[in-house]
Nucleic acid binder design. Structure first.
Lengths: 141, 141
DNA sequence: GTATTTGCAAACGTTTTGCGGCTAC
DNA sequence: GTAGCCGCAAAACGTTTGCAAATAC
């Protein structure tokens, strides 16, 4: 028998937080924000709902170098760029069909791709600028 | 002053295990295998060396849906395909320049890409076959 | 000789879980 | 009324760390 899915203000609030944010919060971040609206919500509930939503493809899990999971409420296809210096996660939206080509490459092997997780790590535009300036200042001495 | 890197039989053994394997073991897996050769090796040492090797770009970290880190001793560029059914991690070796295109797409935004981590999730060829057979058997009743 | 690495065990932070009560439907 | 969800607290999990002894060079 199929499991019935029921609505709850906690789950609605968590989904709304993720839909409104582009910051890729962790479970703890979501918990803090949810408590502003629902002061009695528990961390366990936040975890349960984040897992529930991710398993039902309503949000995405994003893993970074540090060993914690971040969440993303934006379900349009995109990649993530993680800055090695500041740790920020940027959304990158495809402008070509490069991903489709990649997937057809993978499916040549007989595997069936359900979804892809494409991450880039490096130095973000902002940090690259800052570090350049610092290097320049060092050379002056 | 640069930190001197010293050899140890533990580190050599761990690197050898990863070089010889295509199974993308976890730290625990490496620990079990290393103990066959070095019964007194400790889990802490395994973690320390896996992190050391990954930070020195001698092995790769691979993140999957489950909350543990897997390691990969194959440093030639490739993607990973994770089967949702059996959990196995497959290596996929590029046959086109799709990745380069993807990276140039990302770098259009001003970010500098140091490396990429491209993962696909779905049903592997073997599991797809097995499940098809099972569905067929169900229909017969 | 000394700086790095080790084994051990305790500690850490994140995530999951068992429970009894609450709530949506 | 009942299955699903909640808050709470304890437990489990993977991983890191402090220490004194061992080791590489």
């Amino acid at each position: 028998m199929a499991v019935k899915i029921r609505q709850s203000k906690q789950r609605d609030a968590i989904l709304a937080i993720l839909r409104q944010s582009t910051a890729h919060p962790t479970a703890e971040d979501v918990y803090k924000q949810a408590r502003e609206e629902l002061p009695d919500i528990s961390l366990g509930t936040v975890y349960r709902n984040l897992n529930f939503l991710a398993d039902h493809n309503l949000i995405r899990r994003v893993k970074t170098k540090d060993n914690t999971v971040h969440f993303d409420g934006n379900m349009t296809p995109h990649y993530h760029f993680v800055c090695e210096n500041c740790g920020q996660i940027y959304d990158i939206f495809p402008t070509t069909d490069a991903t489709a080509k990649l997937i057809s490459e993978v499916e040549m092997t007989g595997h069936k791709v359900h979804y892809s997780s494409i991450n880039f790590v490096g130095l973000c535009a902002e940090c690259a600028n800052t570090l350049e300036v610092q290097e320049h200042e060092l050379k002056e001495h």
